[in-house]
Design a protein around this nucleic acid. Structure first.
Length: 578
RNA sequence: GCCGAUGUAGCUUAAUGGUAAAGCGGUGGUUUUGUAAACCACUGACGGCAGUUCGAUUCUGCCCAUCGGCUCCA
């Protein structure tokens, strides 16, 4: 028996080998191309090339054909150990490979490994399949630009994505899965279920909420308020527009200005003197500073459902998951240093509470450390990062380190969730901040009567309500749980003879429980009304004809389960409460 | 923002160097229907701006928007 991890390894080796075949095909078809790197990724591989002329998607077919030839020719993968000098000679015209070689020298490696397949030689550790015929059915999927070393200041390369499986069936299954995932796209479902829309009359990335989508937002808020009141949070609200003088103190003007919407007043039209808030912190700080604080006030947990605007680069926009206007379920916790641990632990628990409520799985957790454009001293950062890491370790929570990705004022713990295509998005985040209390000269009076600096924790649970809802839609495909569904049940009269009875049924159900019910009074066949209601993913269809009207019953069809049959109103309502 | 692709009614699609075809939807009517789509009529579109051309929805350029990536981020 071969263990599954061995199978995974074999698959990875095969895919990596397929990436080499891709490069070999490119070398043959496009002489003079520069080669960068070609690793495996989840479900496939890619290779980055520096082409002389730009490539178009139509070229992929041509490359695929060439790859098939190479595979058929059954070329052997030959491994060689070379000295740096020997390798440099081989890659003399390969700028990117030479750069990689330099790095290996710096790492102190004496020799390097190369693999040769036909005429194609790559700097590569391997391992590879023995020969190209051992590569299974493959497909090139897409073409994309990618910066060399992931740095936008470096040249842009052309990345070709592909995948490869052990047999045709598995490849077809994978491609089929990708197609199915597209049907769960929140942008498509948002349109079909009439949740939200976009209009050119607004800046791209600004959402118009349709009644049903806004209902979902309100439910998220309702649940949020319930949980946060219990957890001892106070809710505040701060202005949408603040003067640049405050953005200057907090450092936003320096670190965030290229994303801030600029505002001027009518009496000072030509001056950019205010900005729409891209974050809620500054307003929160002013609320804190409004009155002197005592140690007795701490921890002070102040929540704000703040609408923020960030002028994101156009290529970043992604429906409601990445928009330019979004609602943060923000909170700022002002506390003493000794309270930090327990506060952060409580926030982590709250995050997991929410994921459970919405039946969402966390993909992974990251500890993001000091970025380049940070404010605050080395000591402060050192201390903050250590505190954060210790909390994760002490609570035995798995995490990755995301170096240099912290907020400019402090390190963060980020929670990442997956969308339908497996892309991960940062939702919850907890940020520890020693810098802003310094900038704003925040203080409280301690037991000894001395003025002391509080610590500030910034945190969001949903992250952005919009993003969270987008992820939720992609996770459940628009099949919202009963408690959340904008329309929970729809009454479908078989003929218009039953409309009166339908109204009565609705009234009687609402008497027992305030279920959100619609009546479909359209002049359509029952079958069609059922088809439409199913398409709208309504949890319960209440079908009533002459029979039900006579026996004073209703006939229930449940989403995902089909016909449940005739029952009394009380029975139905009771079943929805379980 | 960068690389590549796409852009025809509210939605899904068709055709064309001589101003556009259909289904769904919407409106009006017929029908009174039993668990995924009855019938008839009407309605409604070439993303924008230039250029080439006698003539451009079609070809070219620029812009805008969207999609897949990169980078960035909640």
């Amino acid at each position: 028996m071969v263990s599954s991890s061995t199978n995974d390894n074999n698959l990875e080796v095969m895919r990596h080998s397929c990436a080499h075949v891709l490069a070999a095909a490119v070398q043959k078809l496009y002489p003079g191309t520069k080669f960068a790197i070609g690793p495996t990724i989840d479900n496939g591989f890619y290779y980055d090339f520096g082409f002389k002329k730009s490539l178009s998607e139509h070229d992929l077919v041509k490359i695929e054909r060439e790859m098939a030839k190479i595979i058929k020719a059954n070329l052997v993968f030959t491994k060689k150990q070379l000295s740096h000098q020997q390798a440099k000679k081989i890659f003399v015209n390969q700028f990117y490979k030479l750069e990689l070689l330099e790095e290996l020298v710096c790492d102190g490696q004496k020799t390097v490994t190369i693999y040769q397949t036909g005429n194609f030689i790559d700097l590569c550790l391997g391992p590879h399949v023995r020969s190209t015929s051992q590569i299974g059915p493959f497909k090139l999927l897409s073409l994309a630009g990618a910066y060399w070393r992931g740095d936008e200041n470096q040249p842009m390369l052309t990345r070709i994505y592909g995948t490869c499986f052990v047999n045709q069936k598995k490849l077809d299954q994978h491609l089929d899965q990708l197609e199915k995932a597209k049907k769960r796209d929140h942008r498509l479902i948002g349109k079909n279920l009439n949740l939200f829309s976009f209009h050119p009359q607004a800046s791209p990335g600004n959402v118009f909420w349709q009644p049903k989508g806004y209902f979902l937002m309100k439910k998220l808020i309702e649940y949020w308020r319930e949980k946060h009141e219990k957890a001892g949070y106070l809710e505040v609200r701060t202005p949408e527009i603040l003067t640049n003088s405050i953005w200057d103190i907090s450092g936003h003007l320096k670190s965030f200005a290229d994303k801030m919407y600029r505002v001027s007043t009518p009496d000072d039209k030509n001056n950019w003197n205010m900005s729409i808030k891209p974050m809620n912190c500054d307003g929160g700080v002013l609320i804190y500073k409004n009155s002197p604080k005592s140690y007795r006030d701490l921890p002070l947990r102040m929540g704000e459902l703040g609408v923020v605007h960030r002028y994101e680069a156009s290529g970043e926009l992604h429906g409601i998951i990445r928009s330019r206007e979004f609602t943060q379920d923000d909170a700022h916790i002002f506390c003493t240093k000794s309270q930090v641990k327990s506060e952060i632990k409580e926030i982590i628990d709250l995050c997991f509470d929410f994921y459970q409520k919405f039946d969402l799985g966390l993909d992974h957790l990251e500890l993001s450390t000091r970025p380049k454009n940070s404010i605050g001293s080395d000591e402060i950062w050192q201390e903050a990062e250590t505190v954060m890491e210790n909390i994760l370790k002490e609570n035995e929570i798995d995490y990755k380190i995301n170096k240099g990705d912290g907020a400019f004022y402090g390190p963060k713990i980020d929670f990442h969730l997956k969308d339908s295509l497996g892309r991960t998005w940062q939702c919850s985040t907890i940020q520890l901040d020693f810098a802003q209390p310094e900038n704003f000269d925040l203080s409280y009076t301690n037991q000894a009567g001395k003025k002391v600096r509080p610590v500030m924790i910034h945190r969001v649970i949903y992250g952005s309500l919009e993003r969270f809802l987008g992820i939720l839609i992609e996770s459940n495909g628009g099949n919202f749980p009963f408690w959340l569904a904008p329309t929970q049940a729809i009454i479908i009269p078989i003929t218009d003879q039953q409309i009166k009875y339908a109204q009565q049924v609705k009234k009687n159900i609402k008497k027992i429980n305030n279920i959100r019910i619609e009546i479909d009074t359209s002049n359509e066949t029952a079958s069609k009304k059922i088809a439409l209601a199913e398409g709208q993913k309504i949890p319960y269809l209440i079908i009533i004809g002459a029979k039900e009207a006579k026996s004073k019953t209703i006939n229930i069809r449940k989403r995902g389960e089909g016909v449940l049959g005739e029952m009394r109103i009380e029975e139905f309502v009771k079943s929805t409460q379980s």
